[in-house]
Each structure stands twice: as structure tokens, then as C-alpha cells.
Design a protein around this nucleic acid. Structure first.
Length: 274
DNA sequence: AATGTCTCCAACCGCCCGCAC
DNA sequence: TGTGCGGGCGGTTGGAGACAT
């Protein structure tokens, strides 16, 4: 484990606010790479507990860690920081990730802000290992309209059904999806941030919705959208035609692209991966 | 039991942006 | 205004463990 990466790079430490010239002046040291040891973790935790998070290069230097500031920052944010949630991504979190990815594309840190305790790295890994894998299995690009429609019409409704089942209330099909977890009481019983899922509930209705609980609440987004994704998702009204479409025809221009047969096939493809 | 393949995820890399000088 | 530095972010890598053969 310890030698997984190259042993490190030599750098010359400049005189700093930490240590004496005898200790650090012109001293050449090797920057460690690879997995962190328990001792390093302990040193970093202790240092940040006392001094707080800031000036990561100084943290690395002053704590006596032979790591880059970036490495310290990453280790702290993704692993050591209090309240970091570990373990499987829940159904609610999966749905939220899909929902927010529709809006923001690969803005992992922004998406992570909406999932308390989850890191951008974790969400990114989830997307690549689960969602991108599905796209490959369906032989389509993950950003293609076809695949996004698959997520919207098959994957997300299934997630919602499973969430609903786990909540243990309400009918299981059709209109029930539009009211899922729409109340404060329901939000509290289903966990933090689930109120946001009321937004995702409009997937099956094709209506524009607002996202009142999001920091970026001024964004009106339409989850039935197509085209120009994700590059133009936040570039302003002149470049976001997908937000402005008329979805009274369910977003397909009336074309019957998703027959029962197609949907059945896709459901079979996705059934084991939820 | 041995070997090959797949999946997960921690950690690194490189680019970009903001800020101080 | 230009330059350097620190920090943030998305993309990528590769080892460990799980699973399949």
C-alpha cells in the first residue's frame, strides 16, 4: 500500500511562518503520495481541530505533514471531516443526484451541497460507476437525449416507487408520483432534503416546477427537457432552449419513441441495478 | 483452490479562477 | 496590467476486494 505511487517529489521548502530556519530553511524534503496513514490522519485532525481549515499549504507545513496542501484538503474534506456520511447511496440520494444532474450537469460539488455529508467525490463515483455504466449497457451516450429520457421515464419513476414503498404510504402508481413526499410531515419522515424530491415528482407530469429549497432557487427548470445538455444549462435564457420548450406533448413532439415494448426492454435492463 | 474479471472508491492530476502584490 | 500563488473543481487512475469461472 505505501508504495502504490511514486515515492514522491523533491521540493525545497521556503522559509515560512512555521518552524525555524534551522528546521525548514532550504531543507529539501520528499512529498509523500498515496494512501494516508493513521498517524498522518491523526496529525491532520489534531491540527485542524486547533487551528481550523484555511491555508492548506500552511496546514501541511505547520502540521509537519510531508504532503501537499491539496492532498491535505482532499483528505480532510473527503474522509476526515466530521459528519462525512459513509456507506451506500440511499434511494432518496440517488433520485436527488439524478434530479440535480439534470439541472447542473457535472457540477459535483454543487450537487454535493444538497446532500448533507456526501462529498463531490462520492457523488462523482456514483455517477460514473452506476449511471455511466448503464449508458454503456444501453449503448448510448450518457448525455444523449435518449439516455436522459431513459433515466427520466424509467429509472427515476422506479426509484420513486421504491422510495414510496419504503415510506409505506399512498398509492403506488400514476398520480401518486406527483404528490410523493410533498408535505413537511412526509419530508420529516423520509429524511433530510427529501422535500426536494417533490420537485422530481413532476417527471411523470411534464410540468415546469420551481425548486424552493435550493440555494439557486431562481432557476426554473423543466425535467422533461431535451437538447443542449449539459453545456448550456447555466448560460442564461438565450442558450437554454431545453428550459423553454412546450412539454404539453410530453417533450417528444408527439413522436411515439417510447412504446410499451421499448420501456419494457429498458426496465429489464435497469431492473437489477437500482 | 487458483486465476481472471469486474466494481468500488481513495487519491492524484491538471486546469481554471480569484486574489494579492 | 502582469505575475505568482493558493484553492476549488472535474476528470482520471490504479489498488483492493468481491465475484465469476
Amino acid at each position: 500500500m505505501e508504495t502504490r505511487y511514486t515515492t514522491g517529489v523533491h521540493v525545497t521548502r521556503s522559509l515560512s511562518d512555521c518552524g525555524s530556519a534551522a528546521t525548514y530553511g532550504s531543507e529539501e524534503m520528499v512529498i509523500r503520495k498515496g494512501p494516508w496513514t493513521e498517524e498522518e490522519d491523526s496529525v491532520l485532525i489534531n491540527y485542524i481541530t486547533v487551528h481550523g481549515e484555511s491555508q492548506w499549504n500552511s496546514v501541511a507545513r505547520c502540521a509537519g505533514l510531508k504532503r501537499t496542501g491539496k492532498s491535505c484538503r482532499l483528505r480532510w474534506l473527503n474522509y476526515l471531516r466530521p459528519n462525512v456520511r459513509r456507506g451506500n447511496i440511499t434511494l432518496q440520494e440517488q433520485l436527488l443526484i439524478l434530479d440535480l444532474h439534470f439541472r447542473w450537469g457535472n457540477r459535483w460539488s454543487k450537487i454535493a451541497e444538497q446532500l448533507p455529508g456526501r462529498t463531490d467525490n462520492e457523488i462523482k463515483n456514483y455517477w460514473r460507476t452506476r449511471v455511466v455504466k448503464q449508458a454503456k449497457q444501453l449503448k448510448c451516450d450518457v448525455n444523449s437525449k435518449q439516455f436522459r429520457d431513459t433515466l427520466r421515464l424509467v429509472w427515476m419513476p422506479r426509484l420513486m416507487e421504491q422510495i414510496q414503498a419504503s415510506c409505506g404510504t399512498g398509492p403506488s402508481h400514476g398520480q401518486a408520483q406527483t404528490t410523493l413526499c410533498n408535505t413537511q410531515a412526509h419530508s420529516e419522515s423520509c429524511g433530510p432534503n427529501l422535500r426536494m424530491l417533490s420537485v422530481a415528482s413532476s417527471y411523470s407530469t411534464g410540468v415546469d416546477v420551481q425548486a424552493p429549497s435550493l440555494s439557486d432557487s431562481s432557476v426554473s427548470y423543466n425535467l422533461m427537457g431535451g437538447g443542449n445538455w449539459p453545456e448550456n444549462a447555466e448560460k442564461g435564457p438565450t442558450s437554454t432552449p431545453w428550459q423553454q420548450r412546450d412539454y404539453s406533448d410530453n417533450g417528444f413532439g408527439g413522436a411515439d419513441l417510447w412504446t410499451d415494448e421499448n420501456l419494457w426492454f429498458l426496465q429489464q435492463q435497469l431492473a437489477d441495478d437500482l
